[in-house]
């Protein structure tokens, strides 16, 4: 065992990269759930975003356009969910699961011609002297644009929910759609926009996998990341900064686990792999002990269909 082989700065830096896809997907799903919609199709939207982004980046040679395409693809796919659940009032859980299965199949179909192709490289942002700072420079200032974008997005979502009128309306719709409707807010449209935002974020997360972290296209490459994103939203009790912590914790355990193994530490891999989920369960138990759903901070209308006639 040689722990000195693990460089903490490098470890933290790769932790941020490993966490970015689930962070993006989770922050999108947070907005969706805040509006009172439970979309279990994150995995499907992620993988669709992964192939859309990959295909467009390869065709145009521009990773930036790839990310835009990924967001559009994810948002478009999420609209099938939006139309089904908001206009036809289908069951959100069943529709979300169907969206995941549909997305996995669709991405495999779209990706037929893209196996074994290398995407155009995504460069790191040059932050000049900041990147040369000891330790901090390596951890924080040598990443690609999407890492910073994801952090900005978390801050933006936080500010949006906390300080803006639109954020207040979104929360109102999620807490009590009947009251919001009585006040004259267009519940269905607010929710549709939230679903589209969630789809776009999931798409970005997927594209981050296929364009930066892996970078290549393979069928089923998200390998369950979407489900982890869903768990993180609950873990973060629907609060943006806690979602960030949750995502970095989940990503961190994965990276740490691999690094400990590479350093030859005899650590039971299975326990480390399950630890984030154990923590989630623990958090849920503690938060829900005694004080009910309100203490959990879950939006009160989460998962309930709305129709103006009700």
């Amino acid at each position: 065992m040689d722990l000195s082989a693990i460089n903490p700065a490098v470890l933290l830096a790769s932790l941020m990269v490993a966490s970015t896809p689930i962070l993006l997907a989770a922050i999108g799903e947070l907005i969706v759930e805040k509006s009172g919609v439970l979309n279990l199709g994150v995995e499907g939207m992620m993988i669709t975003g992964a192939i859309c982004g990959f295909a467009i980046a390869v065709q145009t040679g521009s990773p930036a356009l790839g990310f835009v395409g990924a967001a559009a693809g994810g948002a478009l796919l999420s609209m099938t969910f939006g139309v089904l659940t908001q206009f036809f009032l289908s069951n959100q859980v069943a529709t979300g699961l169907a969206l995941t299965l549909f997305g996995l199949g669709l991405s495999a179909l779209l990706g037929q011609g893209y196996v074994g192709i290398k995407p155009p490289p995504v460069g790191d942002i040059n932050l000049g002297p900041l990147a040369d700072l000891p330790f901090i420079g390596r951890v924080l200032f040598q990443h690609d644009a999407m890492v910073y974008f994801s952090l900005l997005l978390v801050a933006a979502v936080w500010a949006f929910l906390k300080y803006t009128r639109a954020g207040l309306i979104l929360r109102a719709v999620g807490e009590s759609h009947d009251a919001a409707h009585a006040l004259g807010y267009k519940v269905v449209w607010v929710r549709l926009m939230a679903i589209a935002f969630g789809g776009a974020c999931a798409g970005l997360g997927g594209a981050y996998l296929s364009l930066v972290r892996v970078p290549q296209w393979t069928e089923g490459m998200t390998a369950g990341a979407g489900w982890i994103a869903l768990a993180i939203v609950v873990f973060g009790s629907w609060k943006p900064w806690r979602v960030l912590i949750g995502a970095y914790l989940f990503g961190g355990v994965t990276v740490l686990q691999l690094n400990l193994q590479a350093a030859g530490l005899a650590v039971p891999v299975e326990y480390l792999s399950m630890s984030p989920y154990l923590i989630t369960i623990l958090v849920l138990v503690i938060m829900s002990s005694g004080r009910g759903r309100a203490a959990l901070n879950a939006p009160a209308s989460l998962g309930r269909s709305f129709h103006a006639s009700s």
């Binding site: 790769s14 490993a18 896809p21 996998l209 089923g220 390998a223 990276v255 691999l258």
Partner: peptide
């Protein structure tokens, strides 16, 4: 030990961890 036959993201992270060390 990756405990998977096929998981590109995890395989990539594993390779990364080895290279970093």
């Amino acid at each position: 030990w990756a405990f998977t036959w096929f998981d590109p993201a995890k395989e990539s992270d594993a390779a990364q961890a080895l290279i970093e060390q």
